[in-house]
């Protein structure tokens, strides 16, 4: 049982730096009263972002994601003869040879079930458990930011990583596609053709939808992360959950619960490639992600704000 006094001399803006063990004393705040300012939260968030993206592990994960489309593109380029017109390969692969832009969609369709959730699971699962394991969590809590806001900052940082991961896949695919295949007007799923500008707009929309599709998983990962003091355990559990849920999603017998699985509507991003765009499935997907976010976000909050942090 220990009593850690909140340092009485901390300015709002310095909370983040406090977390990285470099407090600057610049003003006096009564003990026990936390300054709840937007600037303070922003500083905390910025510190989390820095923490996430400065790690070698994060950069390696992004590199892995960026390598995937290159691999896909090269394979399609070499094996053009065999892939052409085949309906059995991954979605959109057959169209890549005609338009390099399709590599963006093909790469996202390949990355979404496994690679993206894996990297997101690593980042989200490790966010709190990892700090607990290395013993930095209690120092982080010394900052007068409050656990709720720390959790929110962790969540937002993980979401930013989702965007970065999706962009890594999409931009690398775009570059590879442009380098290896012709670019130009694109055939939509409906058989209509749109110009390069319209196609790029759809690619941007799709990247946004894919990144948001991972919000539910981030919340789950964060919750798992508050349950354990071991980063590895949290990461493995989160990634394992993704695999488990996708297996459940493939059983026809579980038809009744499948619409509630967070991976069920991930591939609806393809509906943006129809003419006119078909939003029903995408909105359902985003609604489902919001639901998971609410449930697991509040579960993470309930656990984290009432937990003994001893490490």
């Amino acid at each position: 049982m220990s009593q850690v006094e909140v340092a009485p001399t901390v300015s709002p803006a310095s909370m983040a730096s406090m977390a990285s063990m470099a407090p600057t004393v610049s003003g006096r705040v009564p003990a026990g009263v936390r300054p709840q300012t937007a600037a303070g939260f922003l500083a905390l968030f910025r510190s989390e972002i820095t923490l996430t993206f400065r790690r070698t592990r994060t950069i390696a994960l992004l590199g892995l994601l960026a390598a995937l489309p290159v691999l896909l593109g090269v394979v399609v380029k070499i094996e053009t003869g065999d892939m052409h017109g085949g309906a059995n390969g991954p979605a959109f692969i057959a169209q890549v040879t005609q338009n390099g832009l399709f590599l963006v969609f093909a790469a996202l369709a390949v990355a979404l079930p496994v690679f993206l959730p894996m990297t997101v699971g690593v980042v989200a699962g490790d966010s709190i458990a990892g700090e607990a394991a290395t013993g930095t969590l209690r120092y982080l809590l010394v900052a007068p930011a409050g656990r709720t806001r720390l959790l929110a900052a962790k969540f937002l940082a993980a979401m930013v990583f989702c965007w970065a991961a999706t962009l890594a896949v999409a931009l690398s695919a775009l570059a590879t596609g442009a380098a290896l295949f012709p670019m130009g007007s694109m055939t939509l799923l409906s058989g209509d053709t749109v110009g390069l500008g319209g196609a790029l707009l759809r690619a941007v929309l799709i990247a946004g939808v894919v990144a948001l599709s991972l919000a539910g998983l981030v919340a789950i990962g964060l919750f798992v992360s508050t349950l354990t003091g071991s980063g590895i355990a949290a990461m493995a559990t989160t990634v394992g959950l993704v695999i488990l849920v996708q297996i459940l999603d493939s059983f026809p017998q579980l038809h009744a619960i499948q619409p509630w699985l967070f991976t069920h509507q991930w591939l609806t991003f393809g509906d943006l490639l129809r003419a006119p765009m078909y939003w029903t499935g995408i909105l359902q997907n985003l609604g489902l992600q919001a639901l998971y976010l609410a449930v697991f976000g509040s579960a993470a909050w309930a656990r984290f704000t009432s937990r003994d942090v001893t490490a």
Binding site: M1, V6, G32, L141, G146, R147, D308
Partner: peptide
């Protein structure tokens, strides 16, 4: 009875 830094309850 345990008080930890960062608990929301402290401010009350």
């Amino acid at each position: 009875m345990t008080d930890y830094a960062g608990f929301e309850g402290e401010q009350s």
